[in-house]
Design a protein around this nucleic acid. Structure first.
Lengths: 235, 235
DNA sequence: GTCCACACGTGATAC
DNA sequence: TGTATCACGTGTGGA
C-alpha cells in the first residue's frame, strides 16, 4: 500500500476471465515432479472428503487474493513502464532486456559520475601527474587524458599549453579546478589518424614528461617565488 | 538466448512439485468473469470430445513451455538481483520497492550529471555572466557562485582574481573549462558572518559588475589582440 | 488467522 | 511451424 499502481496499465479484461485460469483449473493432468511426465492428477478431495463445499468465504478469499496479486503486478509493471520512459531506446524491449538496459545505464551513469569526480576534485595535497589513453576509437584515433595536480600558481596553464603545444595533439578540453591553494589541471587531447601502440606509448610518455617537467620546475622554484599573490591561498 | 539466467536463483524444487500447481489444476471451480462469483467450471473436454487423449506431444509442449517460462523468470529475477546488488540499502525491499528505488537512483544520478554538466560545460558560443547565491547556511554565511563564459585568453584567470580580490569574499573553489577556444570559469565564493539580504544583493551585484567588466574589456580589445597564442583554438 | 510477496504453470498472442 | 513474451489465478511461506 505504499507505492502507487500508476493507472490501469492497459489491463482491461474482467475479473478472472483472462487466460490461464479456466484451463489450468479444469485440466486434471499434472506433470510429475522429477520426470516431467504427464500423469493423472490424484483426485483431490476437500478437507472433509467432499468436493464442492467451498463456501462463500473461500470464494471471497480467492477473489481478494487475485485482486491483490493483480495490484502487485500493476505496481511492478508501472515501475517498469516508468523505467522504460526514462531510458531512450527501450520502447520495444521486453522486460528482461529493459532491466539489462537499466543496469547498463546505471553503470554508465555511475562510471560517468566517478570519472567526473575523478577529473574535477583535487586529490589530497599530493603532487601528481597522470597520463592515460582514455579511449581508443575504432578509427585509429585515440584520446589522451592527462592531469597535473600541484600547488596553484597563475601561469601554470600557460606553462602547460606551452609544454604541450609541441606535440601534434589537438586539445579537446581543459578542466582546471582549484581548492585551497591547490590546482588540478585535466587536459583531454586527441590524436587523429592511425597510430600503433608504440606511437601511443610515445605520445603518452611525451605528455608525461612535459607535465612532470612543469612540476619539477615549479617545485625547484617554489622556495623563492612570491606565494602571496593568490587570492585563494590555503588557510 | 541473449542474456544469462545467472544460475538457479535459489529455486531448488523439483519440476512441478512446487506450490501453486496441484491444487490449481484439480479444483474444478472457477471465478465468474464480471461478478467475481465462484461457479462450476464448464466441463472441459478434449478437442474431439474426449478427455484424456492428450498425447505425448502436448505433454512435451507443456513441459517445454513451463521450462521456458521458468528460464524467463530466472532471467528477469537475475537482473533484479543485479540491480539490488548495485544499489545499497535495497537488500530487504520487495520487487516493486526495488524498482522504485532504481527509478529514484536513476533520477538522482541524472540530475547529478545535469548539475555537473551545468557547472562544467561551456554553453553554446554565447558570452555570459551568471551570479547566484548558491546556498545560504543557517549560520548567516552565504555562498556566491559566479560564472563567466567567453572567448578564451591566457590571462583571464588573473583578471578574474584581480577583479574579485577587492571583495571580502573567500574563494572556495574555481573551475575552469575550455573547449574549442571558449572558456567557462566558475568561481565559488563564501562570505562568512551574518549578512542581510541587502548585503547579499550588494555582493552579488558587485561580483556581477566585476565579471562583466572583464567581459567588456575583452570584447573591446578582442579586435587587436593576437589570437594565435592559444594551442586549443577552435578549428 | 490475516496479509503480503513470491514462484509456479498455463492460455493467449506475436513473429 | 515452433518459440518467444506476457498476464493471469493460485499455493505457500513468512511476518
Amino acid at each position: 500500500m505504499s507505492s502507487i499502481p500508476l493507472g490501469d496499465c492497459g489491463v482491461s479484461r474482467g475479473f478472472c476471465d483472462g487466460p490461464g485460469f479456466g484451463a489450468g483449473a479444469s485440466v486434471t493432468l499434472v506433470l510429475d515432479g522429477e520426470r516431467g511426465e504427464l500423469v493423472r492428477a490424484p483426485a483431490r478431495v476437500g478437507k472433509k472428503g467432499k468436493v464442492g463445499v467451498l463456501d462463500a468465504s473461500v470464494a471471497m478469499a480467492l477473489k481478494t487474493h487475485s485482486e491483490a496479486e493483480r495490484r502487485r503486478r500493476q505496481r511492478i509493471n508501472g515501475h517498469l513502464a516508468t523505467l522504460r520512459s526514462m531510458i531512450p531506446g527501450t520502447e520495444k524491449l521486453d522486460k528482461a532486456a529493459l532491466l539489462a538496459e537499466v543496469i547498463n545505464h546505471l553503470k554508465g551513469l555511475k562510471s560517468n559520475a566517478m570519472e567526473i569526480s575523478k577529473g574535477c576534485t583535487i586529490p589530497s595535497d599530493v603532487d601528481e601527474v597522470r597520463v592515460e589513453v582514455e579511449d581508443v576509437m575504432n578509427s585509429g584515433s585515440f584520446i589522451i587524458k592527462a592531469s597535473l595536480c600541484c600547488e596553484d600558481r597563475p601561469d601554470i596553464l600557460a606553462d602547460i599549453r606551452q609544454a604541450l603545444q609541441t606535440l601534434q595533439l589537438k586539445t579537446i578540453r581543459v578542466d582546471i579546478s582549484t581548492l585551497g591553494g591547490r590546482v588540478k589541471n585535466v587536459i583531454v587531447m586527441k590524436c587523429e589518424g592511425n597510430a600503433n601502440d608504440i606511437e601511443k606509448h610515445l605520445y603518452t610518455s611525451s605528455v608525461h614528461r612535459a607535465l612532470e617537467s612543469i612540476l619539477d620546475r615549479f617545485n625547484s622554484s617554489v622556495d623563492f617565488l612570491p606565494r602571496t599573490s593568490f587570492s585563494n591561498k590555503r588557510q
